[in-house]
Write a protein that binds this DNA or RNA. Structure first.
Lengths: 189, 189
DNA sequence: CGTATTATTGACCACTTTCAAAGTGAGTGG
DNA sequence: CCACTCACTTTGAAAGTGGTCAATAATACG
């Protein structure tokens, strides 16, 4: 890695795969997210584009110089890293302690919350989302199998909480109930 | 939180608990680790001492000023945050994709690798470690139950990989095999 | 010692996975 | 325009890993 970059448009994912093929997605990367690690010349994890992507790239060495000469940038990068750290820590709880149903409900609401970032023309609204990932990618993100994701979606549908529209569309029919199913604190933020 | 701090001696843990009592430990905090979030006046997660602790505290406002006036500190904090981010991302893989046995093996080797940091007088050596956590705390860290942790320890003992000495002591009898059981890349670093 | 706490073990159960098959849908070429 | 194909998704049945509940054992502490 001789450069670092910032995502301008599109979605990518960060992932780690073991030798035997097990894959865990470590996070989704959206516009304004940062790729690469200043001060390190190799990549520890894989970055894969999920859609067409536009990047804003910097030569790593130049970026590192900039970090040292422009104090403002370092504090900004620090703030971004700490926010990312919090997001990843929430995901630790999801992977370690949530049930499959809670994981899927959490994912659907995550997509809703960030829907503007995911999609330009999919026309997401409060109660309709366009999934940025295929089932197998959702499974890798949630620490599940593709079958379990599919079954939980069907179960949520059977319970009247969602409606599945083709492969990528989902209507959220009962947001309050869906939030209650995430396993998160019920208190509004 | 009106202050931030750095751990001087002792071990603490960062954790998140849901309303129904499920707990996930988000990370262990060792000497030199940083507590608190500059630029935020509330705590998102709980920090709990695991042993007696010595902290080096700073008033948060003063620390924030220092961040802005001393560029070096921001880059140092950034580097620490990015290292922490990598560690947490490895844990995502552990929680999402590893088996109970792999989780326990990983934990034992983690304790070995950082044994100097965990314990002053426990006299840890290459093949003997003193666990910094009780079984229930290990369970919360690995996303398991206490019974499963206990069973996996017994299984590793039955397989001749470890020896359990009292509640906190473990002899690592076969390090190469134990490493192979972590589910991580077999290649040496 | 006796007591309280923590750890281990056992039996059973449930959730998720695995393996397998059928269904759906988008794109291609006749 | 319509079958055909391929990839993805859904569904089903069986198995397995880890969880739950309960009892026993070990350890620490007064």
């Amino acid at each position: 890695m001789s450069f670092v970059a910032s995502i301008v448009t599109g979605v990518a994912k960060l992932e780690k795969m073991s030798e035997d093929g097990r894959t865990q997605t470590l996070g989704l990367m959206l516009p304004s997210d940062f790729i690469g690690r200043p001060g390190r010349d190799f990549a520890v994890y894989d970055v894969t584009a999920v859609s067409d992507i536009t990047l804003c790239c910097f030569a790593r060495s130049q970026f590192e110089t900039m970090l040292e000469t422009t104090p403002h940038i370092a504090t900004r990068m620090l703030s971004m890293a700490l926010d990312e750290l919090d997001a990843v820590r929430d995901w630790l709880f999801l992977l370690g302690r949530k049930t499959a149903r809670e994981k899927v409900a959490t994912f659907l609401l995550l997509v809703q919350r960030r829907s503007e970032a995911f999609d330009a023309e999919g026309k997401p609204t409060l109660d309709h989302i366009t999934l940025p990932l295929a089932r197998s990618e959702i499974a890798d993100y949630l620490g599940l199998t593709i079958e379990t994701v599919s079954r939980q979606m069907s179960a949520l549908k059977a319970d009247g909480l969602i409606e599945v529209v083709g492969k990528r569309g989902v209507n959220l029919l009962n947001l309050p109930q869906l939030r209650a199913e995430t396993g998160d604190t019920h208190r509004q933020l």
